[in-house]
Design a protein around this nucleic acid. Structure first.
Lengths: 352, 352
DNA sequence: TGACGGAATGTTTGCGCAAACAACGATCGG
DNA sequence: CCGATCGTTGTTTGCGCAAACATTCCGTCA
């Protein structure tokens, strides 16, 4: 947040209405017949207030419906006890689960979460978020963005605020927390290879997703390590539908007996496509997903997949960002959260 | 938020660290050689600042990395431009989609969203959320709680803050925004009946969910209207797994040719159960869901379901709560967002 | 009895910002 | 050429709260 961007989005003065006058400590103090400071003490549970006085104050508070003004409190303390979370969408399982974990863990630490949506996943969009950020009441920021746009944007907007990034590269400049995408993908591929498949096909996520790229890369590497042929890669957009479309083509691909989908939803699409094409999973063809969404157990057949520990990712985000808040200097670095393969019924040895 | 709850949770004074001294307007003013007020004017894009002065100030801002302190701003204006959202979980599709819509629409109105998690869905839990709420920097509150616990809790804690409730009864005391659950369920049942089914079975959501109860009730009513037998009702917990378990039993139920699941995920479980039991959907048995989650198109077979317009729900929530913020007095009332049936491939006439 | 200590309460002050008003200089009409 | 006007900048003030310091009023003990 720089001065420029601040002044670049002045809030139209017309928007400002007269502040709705609310009950303040002074009002309570007057009614209770004490000083404002005493009200403050009662409000904060300070010990040196005698019982009877306390009761009077509490009574006045109740009668007036007093609520402490957190702006004043924040101004005094210089902190909001709030963390901002910047994200593009909540519609992917990963994002919403991560967010939930962040919210829970932050609450546990006494911090609230403020959401800052990025309307468009372009550089301008991110810029917009950070611009607004300066006006927001947050002590730190967690960025859940699957794109490296962040880099481009923050390059022009170096924030003077603690930040942690999820699901992005840039570990050299930011503190990054992420699932160990590469290892997860490797496990998926190895599992299929171990079952005896000659090679593994891949339906990747969108190009602008860092996670998708890492998974694809790890898939390629795992095959290369074994000196195996790397088949053509399909691309989806994370949606079941895009998986379905890829599956329709993959079903006709000769020699395709094992597919690794970059997420569970695309795997779901694959399952449907194969079903419609009369290719029985896992007898004729094996499918592995990524994420381990709860519904996966009820796919037909139940999906073998790579489990991501979103809870842990969220927890670590909060932990690391709060560490920055408290001890100013912290050097960037990447925290990887391990994954594990969950074998269910969508994988089997290749047909003889 | 009452006085009592405020004082009931004093923040331990030890937690308070020395406020991290940050760059203030005064610092910028000093460096730029102007008054603080001029800095303020530049920061807010006030017109009457001559170009050269503005440049000096902007330069000083940049050099010092100045970010306006929103606590002070909020204190001055008496508002935060922030809406608090109280919720229990983000893991249901409905909640996270509604939240996303709320966030987007709020951003559009220049409001940020602060999340307030309720750890436990008990009365105490809700109470806890509202307690913390008083300390939070919000101008209004949207409650996304599927339980009537809210009532019990807020009865003892009448908030002096604009509020809107999603997915709950209590339209007489609060402003409520919700999907038209009853009509959606009715459409589902009617669709199956129109196809020629003799009756419709129902897998309901958990008892503590208002939405689940409304859907079940509407299902029962729709059957009763036609003078039809109301079969035994199964209960799930929204999860695909619970749908699967219900499906295993329903598959053996004689005469069961049509099932209405209270959400898409339980419908997914049904599909799997029927598949395993050799009951072909929709030839032998029809299934209708509720929600219209994106994955539904890739179920086997693609799911006929009731579409919920979460975006609209979120939009209306923001709209109604902001109306309360701006024009003080607003009377409670319920806003219903219509649903529509989406017919795909999981329904057909009953077997001859 | 009076000086002392400590608990309960009051008073002052400033956090950072911007509205309201004041001051200053330039420009212009008469 | 003078005073009115306007555009630009500075000064004062207070938003609500709580830390720091001041005061009062006890009871206690030499």
């Amino acid at each position: 947040m720089t001065a420029e961007s601040t002044s670049g989005t002045p809030r139209p003065p017309a928007t400002r209405r007269a502040p709705a006058r609310r009950v303040s400590m002074a009002d309570v103090a007057r009614l209770a017949g004490v000083s404002a400071q005493t009200v403050s003490r009662v409000s904060n549970g300070h010990p040196s207030v005698v019982g009877s006085t306390r009761e009077q104050v509490l009574d006045a508070m109740r009668r007036l419906g007093y609520r402490p003004n957190s702006a004043a409190r924040a101004l005094k303390y210089g902190e909001f006890r709030t963390i901002g979370v910047i994200l593009f969408t909540l519609s992917t399982v990963g994002n919403s689960r991560t967010l939930e974990a962040i919210v829970d863990h932050a609450a546990h630490e006494g911090y609230a979460i403020t959401l800052i949506p990025v309307a468009v996943p372009t550089q301008d969009g991110v810029l917009g978020a950070f611009t607004r950020l300066g006006e927001l009441a947050v002590d730190a920021v967690i960025v859940i963005m699957e794109v490296h746009l962040l880099d481009a944007a923050t390059m022009t907007l170096p924030l003077g605020i603690p930040a942690v990034v999820v699901d992005s590269n840039g570990g050299d400049r930011y503190t990054v927390v992420d699932t160990d995408q590469a290892d997860g993908a490797r496990q998926a591929v190895r599992h299929l290879l171990d079952l005896g498949h000659r090679t593994v096909w891949h339906v990747a996520g969108p190009e602008d997703s860092y996670a998708a790229e890492r998974r694809a890369e790890a898939w390629r590497d795992a095959l290369a390590e074994e000196g195996l042929e790397v088949p053509r890669m399909w691309r989806g957009d994370w949606s079941a539908d895009s998986g379905y479309r890829a599956g329709l083509e993959l079903a006709d691909e000769p020699g395709c007996t094992a597919v690794f989908a970059a997420n569970d939803q695309m795997a779901l699409g694959l399952l449907r496509a194969f079903h419609e094409k009369g290719r029985v999973v896992p007898r004729d063809i094996s499918v592995v997903g990524f994420d381990d969404i709860p519904d996966g157990t009820s796919f037909i057949p139940p999906l073998t997949t790579v489990h991501q520990d979103f809870t842990e990712v969220g927890r670590r985000c909060v932990e690391r960002v709060l560490r920055q808040v408290h001890h100013r200097r912290t050097k960037p670095g990447t925290t990887l959260v391990p994954t594990r393969l969950v074998v269910r019924a969508s994988t089997a040895p290749p047909p003889a």
